[in-house]
């Protein structure tokens, strides 16, 4: 034993233990950190692709308009022209991908239409609103209004 470590052997051994711990940590880190980590920043780069490939549910109106050209024609110039089809009909990507099946259920207009058109002071002035109980106490809204071109002339 050299003079340098005289009376200090325990400290050398303890330092050795720490060194073993640090080496084990470095190996563990190399082994466990996901390979794509740090590709773009301090995160797992592969997460971007995973999030981008999550399933969709809404097809988007352009997909609807590919087939439903008659509705496109009906809606032309109507106040509802700019509304997304699935806003009323619900998410229909599965329908679009399967080429028309399953057929979606028609929405219940008594429930749907008042969400936008029941009178409320909170809605913008000038937005068409009705007190539903006065305007039409019963029956489907669609009995009078064509939802794709609702204006009754």
């Amino acid at each position: 034993m050299s003079d340098l470590f005289k009376n200090k052997v325990h400290l050398v051994r303890m330092a050795g233990l720490f060194l073993v711990g640090i080496v084990a940590f470095v190996i563990l880190r190399w082994w466990m950190v996901p390979k794509s980590f740090g590709e773009y920043g301090h995160y797992r780069g592969a997460a971007l692709g995973e999030i981008a490939s999550l399933p969709m549910h809404y097809a988007g109106r352009a997909a609807c308009e590919e087939c439903h050209t008659d509705i496109v024609a009906q809606r032309k110039g109507s106040p509802h022209e700019q509304i997304g089809c699935e806003t009323c009909h619900g998410p229909l990507l599965a329908h679009a991908e399967a080429g028309g099946e399953p057929k979606p259920a028609l929405p219940d207009s008594r429930q749907l239409c008042p969400r936008c058109h029941s009178a409320s002071p909170y809605r913008p002035k000038g937005f068409p609103q009705v007190v539903v109980a006065d305007h039409a106490p019963e029956g489907q809204c669609t009995a009078c209004h064509n939802p794709h071109a609702p204006k009754i002339s």
């Binding site: 988007g60 700019q82 806003t87």
Partner: peptide, 23 residues
Amino acid sequence: CTLCYQRITKGLTTACCENCPTG
């Protein structure tokens, strides 16, 4: 919110914007 990352990376808009009736 992911800003519908699965949609915007494919050229579609988000579900909320797609379905906002007044834009």
